[in-house]
């Protein structure tokens, strides 16, 4: 019966589907196709923007090769992966916890939900300034509170130690990302009918079943979205690094996003920057496909 319904509607349904996706394709490709092809195209050229007498030279894969073989790029990639790992490793449990809290009923819940989104809507430039003022070695709030509580006696230059600097950047970036991640989880939890939760509370066995067969499968796609978002964030991070460390000390917090920005806007090396951008896009897409394989497998397994 089902099969016959599908079959009889097959072609008109496909037409309908095409009509549904047409506007999105028109608006995305209409506007983005040329810029995308342009950036792909110039990634094989050296434009010599600041030496126009040299003309535009075709360099083949040279830009890609220099990105791949650049030792500075390798350490930038390593730092980026650390940022992504910290963002995921800390961000997912924290945001899941926040979502579970906000899914419970308590007084002033609406207000607390409003408060949760504040970090989101503070403009990036203010966030950068805020964290630089918190981590400031002389007048910063972090040193202030630790001195006040007697934990340290002298102010610490938090961003001077390479590892610590990276972790502090990761934390600052996490703070701005947790609202989004929590709200995504919350919307997932919200779509679970409350009766199921109430029923599961009656006995332990069905509570496990509730988590195992309802919550986890439902939250897996959302976890996938969060994984991808955190990865994109880590690979394109720029503001916080720029404001807090400038990639230092001595390159210890250089990341791919800041590297790309410098290549494009400081050095005007658009060919190199485009090659790097495409490599970032391909890496992130591959990671996204990897994550989705992983989460979908979990999903079918359950």
């Amino acid at each position: 019966m089902k099969a016959s319904v599908r079959k009889s509607r097959f072609s008109s349904r496909q037409k309908f589907g095409l009509l549904l996706i047409a506007p999105s394709f028109i608006i995305i490709l209409g506007l983005m196709l040329y810029p995308l092809l342009y950036s792909l195209g110039i990634s094989f050229f050296n434009l010599h923007i600041t030496a126009p007498w040299l003309g535009t030279t075709f360099v083949g894969l040279k830009n890609y090769l220099s990105v791949i073989t650049d030792p500075d790029m390798h350490s930038a990639l390593e730092h980026t992966l650390i940022l992504a790992a910290v963002g995921i490793g800390l961000g997912i449990p924290i945001s899941l916890l926040f979502a579970i809290i906000l899914n419970r009923k308590f007084p002033l819940r609406g207000l607390v939900r409003g408060i949760l989104i504040i970090p989101w809507v503070i403009p990036g430039s203010v966030q950068g300034l805020l964290w630089s003022r918190i981590f400031d070695p002389h007048y910063g709030a972090l040193n202030g509170i630790l001195i006040q509580w007697g934990i340290i006696t002298d102010p610490v230059a938090w961003l001077l130690d390479p590892t610590r600097a990276l972790l502090f950047i990761a934390f600052a970036s996490l703070w701005g990302a947790v609202p989004m991640m929590s709200l995504l989880y919350l919307s997932g939890l919200q779509s679970i009918p409350e009766e199921l939760f109430d029923a599961s509370r009656v006995d332990g066995a069905s509570f496990w079943g509730y988590i195992r067969y309802i919550v986890i499968p439902l939250l897996l796609p959302i976890t996938l979205i969060n994984l991808v978002l955190r990865t994109i964030d880590a690979f394109t991070m720029f503001d916080l690094v720029y404001v807090l460390t400038g990639g230092g000390p001595a390159g210890a917090t250089q990341v791919t996003g800041y590297y790309l920005y410098q290549a494009a806007f400081t050095k005007l090396n658009y060919g190199y920057a485009s090659a790097l951008a495409w490599l970032i896009a391909i890496t992130v897409t591959l990671l996204a496909i990897f994550y989705s394989r992983f989460t979908l497998k979990e999903e079918t397994a359950s």
Binding site: D136, P137, H138, P155, A157, W158, L159, L160, A165, V243, T245, G246, G248, P249
Partner: peptide, 13 residues
């Protein structure tokens, strides 16, 4: 000069 100078930016700082 404070080694923290290596983490500071801006005339204001």
């Amino acid at each position: 000069v404070d080694p923290a100078a290596l983490t500071l930016k801006g005339g204001g700082a």
